[in-house]
Design a protein around this nucleic acid. Structure first.
Lengths: 227, 227
DNA sequence: TCAACAGTGTGACGTATATCGCACCCCGGT
DNA sequence: ACCGGGGTGCGATATACGTCACACTGTTGA
């Protein structure tokens, strides 16, 4: 539970609180452990909990009637999800599935409510988080309209690099933990097209493909290709 | 200024306040009048004001480098926009342009801040509004991925019908005030394709096309076509 | 140790949709 | 009254991408 506190401290929601408040909030946190591929909740479920990722990665997905899937986002440590149901008590509109083994902190609506009422910083922090998410989502939307598949793949890889990238000898290692199928669902394209785009980038020497990871070797060119 | 108060009273942000608070907030409101086609603010501008539409319609647009445009949304009376910059003080990420003559109430960051601190209902209301927007935006994103252009057009018309529709003798009148070009930008498609989709719907007797409006005559079929 | 299977790589083909081209029509301004 | 331009209707052509098909590889686990 020590690393729990460690990561929670960095989560925006807790950062806003004084030591006392943070301790009180932590007390009502429940820990959840998920194995790779395990579902935390599904579209349509009732839900009144918000989660902060302590370790691992989680994907948020939506399914069409015919079974096709679409990834809304992939989240990593210290990131938050499931807040929508707190302010808008309707069934979940996406499923949450662990991409890797993961540990989460779960926080109920009722536990959080008093903090919203008494500590304006908390609501402000939540508002910031939502505003940010909305901006990002709008960006993704514009990309879907304006940019072709290779461009979206490049953009998505750069985004993943920002969040999960580690600088190395031979380039920027992005261990995204996604299959190409999942990457395809994330950019709204078919697995095959994404595969071909990746192959093309590799051929040009812009990146190297590894298992569930890529190594970016020419970030500048990737950036130009994305827009 | 009487109708101003009338519409403001209905706006979610004000609904949450007691009479006293609402009066105080209204006092710091500034009124803005826009002519059709006039720009309120542009992508990249600094901005620390939020707007509530009192009358008329406003579109939020983003432009690609090559000049193509994409409509994020079209908003009508009592709807709010520009809040993102309040919690996340970065330049505006979209332009706001009047689709019809319009009157807006503008509210500065600094005017609103004390209310967020002291009246938790206000932040709660804002959180609800943002959560709702996020859900809608995610819906639109899924549509872009899953649904073909005619489907998206049908869906968008139904959405506009919900917000601007008026039941009439001969069907549900949706006076959206958009050119087909704008409608196309709203669903992320070309003007021509949207035109053909509309023509197809009209041919089947599902709707009638009027100047900057449509009359939905078979909502059920439209709804089935959308998903 | 091998079977089974999930994930990946790549070509052939079909199709939705963008792009281009043009004709028409309505409406507002001179 | 008429001209001009923005908005619309619609066919011909080009193309990016999805779908299908199959072969290859690596990993898991019996």
């Amino acid at each position: 539970m020590d690393e729990t506190n460690e990561v929670l401290r960095k989560a925006p929601l807790f950062e806003a609180l004084d030591e006392e408040g943070a301790a009180a909030l932590r007390a009502s946190v429940s820990e959840v452990r998920l194995g790779r591929g395990q579902t935390l909740f599904s579209e349509g479920d009732e839900g009144d909990r918000l989660y902060v990722i302590l370790s691992g990665k989680v994907k948020l997905t939506r399914a069409a009637v015919d079974g096709r899937e679409n990834l809304l986002s992939v989240l990593g440590p210290s990131e938050m999800f499931g807040e929508l149901s707190l302010f808008d008590p309707r069934p979940r509109t996406a499923s949450a599935i662990a991409v890797t083994d993961a540990v989460l902190a779960g926080l109920g609506h009722d536990d959080l409510r008093p903090f919203i009422a008494q500590q304006p910083q908390v609501s402000l922090q939540l508002l910031k988080a939502l505003a940010n998410r909305l901006r990002r989502t709008n960006d993704v939307m514009s990309d879907l309209v304006f940019t072709d598949v290779p461009g979206r793949v490049a953009g998505q890889l750069l985004d993943l690099a920002d969040r999960f990238g580690k600088e190395g000898e031979d380039g920027l290692h992005v261990h995204h933990d996604l299959t190409q199928e999942e990457l395809a669902q994330l950019v709204g394209a078919s697995r095959e097209t994404v595969n071909k785009a990746l192959a093309e980038f590799a051929l040009r020497g812009w990146l190297r493909i590894e298992a569930k990871a890529v190594v970016l070797m020419d970030v500048e060119r990737m950036r130009r290709r994305a827009r």
